[in-house]
């Protein structure tokens, strides 16, 4: 697929970054759908690399993720486009919310629309889980890896209360040592 123009890439970041409620992970999930699944501008490998490295970059993960994805598609200008268009409009909105917080919070229309969007985001998250795992599902040996890494990471954070950083580090180390079966 042909590389997109910087303007097109910025357009995607503006749309996704500033309409997805619920914080960083839903935004990353929505960008995955637009950039990897729908447009093919980014390979699943590059997506995975950006996701993992964003986790170990200091600061807010999703901004680093946008910079990484932008740099992979369009170099340093792409990184700036990603980080700025992900943050500037929603930051301006956050300041406006700050100014008028007390009156917004009791407006049922605003809260109704926000509740609808949050519900749509929740549905989207599960499609994102599936498209992360799907490329690795062929054959029993691959399915076992999926079960161990995805299930293990889930239990580690959900049951053992580990933070994402050591989980990602452990998965990387185990993945390095445990050879992947041939496709």
């Amino acid at each position: 697929m042909a590389a997109p123009k910087l303007r097109e890439l910025t357009g995607i970041f503006l749309k996704i970054g500033n309409t997805t409620f619920g914080g960083g992970i839903p935004t990353i999930a929505a960008l995955q759908r637009e950039l990897v699944d729908r447009r093919g501008w980014l390979s699943p490998e590059d997506y995975g690399l950006a996701f993992a490295l964003a986790r170990i970059t200091p600061g807010t993960n999703v901004i680093a993720f946008c910079a990484a994805v932008g740099s992979r598609i369009k170099g340093v200008p792409g990184a700036f486009a990603g980080a700025l268009s992900e943050t500037v409009p929603s930051a301006a909105l956050a300041v406006l919310f700050t100014v008028s917080y007390e009156s917004w919070r009791v407006d049922p229309l605003v809260m109704g629309a926000v509740a609808g969007i949050i519900a749509a985001v929740a549905g989207m998250m599960w499609t994102s889980v599936w498209s992360l795992v799907k490329p690795f599902m062929g054959g029993a040996a691959h399915a076992l890896r999926c079960l161990v890494f995805t299930g293990g990471a889930f239990l580690a954070i959900w049951r053992l209360g580990l933070t994402p950083l050591p989980i990602i580090a452990l998965a990387a180390a185990a993945g390095f040592l445990w050879r992947e079966p041939a496709k």
């Binding site: 992970i25 999930a29 699943p44 490998e45 997506y47 995975g48 690399l49 996701f51 993992a52 986790r55 929740a122 998250m125 599960w126 994102s128 889980v129 992360l132 795992v133 690795f136 890896r145 999926c146 890494f149 995805t150 299930g151 293990g152 990471a153 889930f154 239990l155 580690a156 954070i157 959900w158 994402p164 989980i167 990602i168 452990l170 998965a171 990387a172 180390a173 185990a174 993945g175 390095f176 445990w178 050879r179 992947e180």
Partner: peptide, 19 residues
């Protein structure tokens, strides 16, 4: 590459816990 794939799979697990 195997390590990156493992991280992608683990990130799906983290995504489930956030979802």
């Amino acid at each position: 590459r195997a390590a990156i794939h493992a991280v992608i799979l683990a990130s799906a697990g983290l995504l489930i816990s956030a979802s």
